[in-house]
């Protein structure tokens, strides 16, 4: 696409690759602080999750209020697979992704045809259905106590237990997904997605199969969220039904809104930054949810393009016109 070629991205490119490298070397700096490394791993999962939601919301404009449902579903499927079949990631994780992709495709067939508001309501309801499922199947899932006793998983036969190994594994998945998402943005599919987001009616009359494109984004988004959930569950050794709660969905939405809907990189930064901030702020104050909800409201009112949106305004002033982000 000409637009990609024309974008003055050189300084951004360099900045991007430097940050990727810094991220990869982080465990060496944190060797003596296992707690921070653990938190960093969580931040990476949050970033992956945020990216997965932005694949849907940023590309097609569909807003999901139940994204944690896919995360939790992926977590439970991977956890059950590791516990009752075999704790091999090359077996369990693809299986998780396939099952979730099929579920997302079947529900998506109905959901993505609805208007945006109905879609939003249905995503919330669907995540509650997954939540209910955990309790209906509590003989296997452990119900309210969560699924516990998941064995230490292997990756191609190698046992993965060291925190640094986990960090790199999670980091690799994040960077690979981010590169994939950025690549997709440049393909005809990615451009057609933006067209659907920008003007769905016109897209249809241009001959773009709007429903199918929305469905592809929906399935992709759910599958990546499930992968993040599966990885985190294996990393954590347990998964609780709380991963599917609407508060958790609110968190994911916050990462994306905070980072800037549709920027792909913004939500990744938002997810990571927010996880750290939440950890430190919630240990300081009891009223975490008030600040969280308040911040949510303030950002929607005053900075609807997120922090990345604000940053890109300054960037444009510095480096001339850029089209890093499609207007909402």
């Amino acid at each position: 696409m000409p637009l990609v070629v024309r974008r003055p991205v050189r300084p951004l490119h360099i900045l991007g690759w430097v940050s990727v490298l810094v991220g990869a070397l982080l465990p060496f700096a944190l060797g003596s602080q296992p707690f921070v490394l653990q938190l960093a791993s969580q931040a990476i999962v949050a970033a992956t999750l945020a990216l997965s939601l932005d694949l849907l919301t940023g590309n097609t404009g569909l807003l999901s209020f139940g994204h944690a449902g896919w995360y939790g579903l992926g977590g439970y499927i991977a956890g059950l697979g590791a516990k009752f079949v075999a704790p091999e990631m090359f077996l369990v994780l693809p299986l998780t992704m396939i099952v979730v992709a099929v579920v997302a495709w079947l529900t998506g067939l109905i959901l993505v045809r609805q208007i945006g508001k109905t879609f939003a309501i249905l995503t919330l309801a669907l995540s509650q259905i997954f939540y209910s499922l955990i309790f209906v199947a509590s003989a296997w899932t452990g119900g309210e106590d969560g699924l516990q006793g998941i064995p230490v998983p292997t990756l191609a036969g190698l046992s993965i237990a060291a925190p640094t190994a986990w960090y790199w594994l999670l980091y690799f998945v994040l960077i690979a997904s981010l590169l994939l998402a950025l690549y997709l943005r440049r393909t005809p599919l990615g451009q057609a997605w933006l067209a659907v987001k920008s003007n769905p009616e016109r897209s249809l009359f241009v001959g773009i199969p709007v429903v199918r494109l929305k469905l592809i984004a929906y399935v992709l988004s759910a599958t990546l969220a499930a992968l993040a959930g599966g990885l985190f569950t294996l990393f954590n050794g347990a998964v609780s039904p709380d991963t599917m709660s609407w508060l958790e969905s609110g968190n994911i939405l916050m990462y994306v809104v905070l980072g800037g809907v549709g920027t792909l990189i913004g939500p990744v930064i938002g997810g990571a930054a927010f996880t750290f901030a939440a950890q430190y702020i919630s240990s300081l104050t009891d009223a975490w949810l008030i600040y969280f909800g308040g911040l949510f409201v303030v950002i929607v009112i005053f900075a609807p393009d997120g922090l990345f949106g604000l940053a890109s305004v300054f960037w444009r002033r510095l480096f001339g016109p850029s089209r890093g982000q499609v207007a909402r």
Binding site: L3, Q191, A192, A195, S198, N199, P209, L213
Partner: peptide
Amino acid sequence: FRDFTVAENVSLAIRSRERRNQ
């Protein structure tokens, strides 16, 4: 498509005609 450039608006429709949208 308001936030696309003029040429991109048309390119999108051309790709659609050529069934390259996916």
